[in-house]
Design a protein around this nucleic acid. Structure first.
Length: 440
RNA sequence: GGAGAGGUGCGUGAGCGGUUGAAACGAUCCGCCUCGAAAGCGGACAUACCUUAACGGGUAUCGGGGGUUCGAAUCCCUCCCUCUCCGCCA
């Protein structure tokens, strides 16, 4: 969420940034200015009435007490009656305008909540993924003197990926991993967590996989994207399955004031992610690229505003490091204004090369949300030596989506005999140097 | 699931119908003292919103929401959370 005062004072800028995102400012902002002005008028009326009431109340108190003691004169009796009448009048104004202000607040908040974050100046302007800008490439595509297979064929032949039985027990877009396939998932997760915690300075956390609605609002999944989520009925207050560890981990500090000396805070978490993706049926139906449940190692940072872009670069490099150690060819692209997520001010996607499909595929998305999430989730910090609090900047990125890393590893390291070579860095975690075909 | 206790500012913790935005202590910040520091002394110290050119003024906030009252941190209802005991359970 953007700051109300900022939007009011910088309307032309906000409109321009909305256009850059390919949105119609008039449609998003609606009658923002009219609502804002009406709200402020109503607040002033309401508060004036309250002020009068507060001035009159103590006078009534004094007279009432005199009445109790029976020392009330005739004049005072009259005054008391007049005061009571005056307060009653203010009270009806208060009741009326409390209602109106509440409605105004709701209307205004509704507009404010639908305004996406403003893209940073360094973000390329564009309307779709076509205009994303490649910033660097690492490695080279592996050379094969045979036709490399896609992971769903390899997985089946190796006996490590079972989509048929997954469909039987759960449905489409779920997977069962067997034997070394299951172990590969676990090995990748452990490898990534060890890298982040031992070499890159992150602290590991294990959060709940279900969260309440407030948390989903805090990071921006609600109210706009409810249809992408799995909802769990639970008494009066339903819970939600997390679509990413970003949700519980960023909300760790919701409604808190962080000691400035502790920043930046760098956390990593390995969790399953649940996505309903109601709108995406028909896309990526083959294999395990798009699933209702997948596992991901996430990086989350809480940063001072002035160093958040530096932290974004670091975070992105930390994610890239995983691919480098696994010997997987990839490129990094800066998402253009039209392709960026709702809450992000700048996003780098890391795309890994998939030889079985001859294309680059998103495996990580690293974003700086600036104060957008922090304002909504009320995450502040106190700079050293100052009493005034400020909103932190929040960042996160996958490092990496484990399921897609599994895919990339299997496709890139496949051998002519149908086996898959395990990169050296991963061998200690696998206890094997290759996966060979086996029936399940 | 049953019984009880409680949720107050950055923290500990008083207040239990009117002068309490909230005592006291601690933390933090600014002065004084000091070669410097500690200790000591003095002072400052919530947030959001409305209003104002500004100084300032106002409103709200004592877990969330609702109610009683001229007036609520204080009384009532409800929800959430924490703690203690019992039961159940991985």
């Amino acid at each position: 969420m953007l700051d109300l005062n900022f939007v009011r004072d910088n309307l032309p800028l906000v409109e321009e940034k909305l256009r850059q995102r390919g949105m119609d400012p008039a449609e998003v902002l609606g009658n923002f200015s009219a609502i804002d002005q009406e709200r402020r008028r109503d607040i002033t009326t309401l508060e004036t009435a309250k002020r009068r009431r507060n001035e009159l109340s103590p006078k009534i108190g004094v007279l009432k007490q005199a009445e109790k003691r029976g020392t009330l004169s005739g004049d005072q009796q009259k005054e008391l009656e007049n005061l009571a009448k005056a307060v009653a009048a203010e009270k009806s104004t208060i009741e009326q305008f409390e209602l109106r202000v509440r409605e105004d607040d709701e209307k205004l908040l509704q507009v404010l909540k639908t305004i996406p974050n403003l893209p940073n100046e360094s973000v390329p302007i564009g309307t779709s993924a076509e205009q994303n800008v490649e910033v660097r490439r690492w490695g080279a595509p592996p050379k094969f003197d045979f036709a490399p297979k896609p992971h769903w064929e390899l997985g089946e032949q190796l006996g490590v990926l079972d989509l048929e039985r997954a469909a039987k027990i759960s449905g489409a877009r779920f997977a069962v991993y067997w034997d070394l396939g299951a172990k590969l998932e676990r090995a990748l997760a452990n490898f990534m967590l060890d890298l982040h915690t031992k070499e890159q300075g992150y602290t590991e956390v294990l959060p709940p996989y279900m969260v309440n609605s407030e948390s989903m609002y805090g990071t921006g999944q609600l109210p706009k994207f409810a249809s992408d989520l799995f909802r769990v009925p639970h008494g009066e207050r339903d819970l939600w399955l997390i679509p990413t560890a970003e949700v519980p981990v960023t909300n760790l500090y919701r409604d808190e004031i962080i000691d400035g000396a502790r920043l930046p805070i760098s956390l990593t978490a390995y969790t399953p992610c649940f996505r309903s993706e109601a709108g995406s049926y028909g896309k990526d139906v083959r294999g395990i690229i798009r699933q209702h449940q997948f596992q991901k190692v996430e990086l989350v940072k809480f940063s001072r505003p002035e160093e958040s872009y530096e932290q974004l670069e670091k975070l992105t490099r930390d994610a890239e490091n995983v691919l480098q150690k696994l010997g997987l060819h990839y490129r990094v692209v800066t998402l253009c204004t039209g392709d960026m997520g709702f809450s992000s001010a700048k996003t780098y996607d890391i795309e890994v090369w998939l030889p079985g499909q001859q294309l680059f595929r998103e495996i990580s998305s690293c974003s700086n949300f600036e104060a957008f999430q922090a304002r909504r989730a009320n995450i502040r910090f106190r700079p050293e030596g100052k009493s005034k609090t400020e909103f932190v900047h929040t960042l996160n990125g996958s490092a990496l989506a484990v399921g897609r890393t599994w895919v990339a590893l299997v496709e890139n390291h496949q051998q002519p005999d149908g086996s898959v070579h395990i990169p050296e860095a991963l061998q200690p975690y696998m206890g094997a140097d290759r996966i060979t075909p086996k029936k399940f």
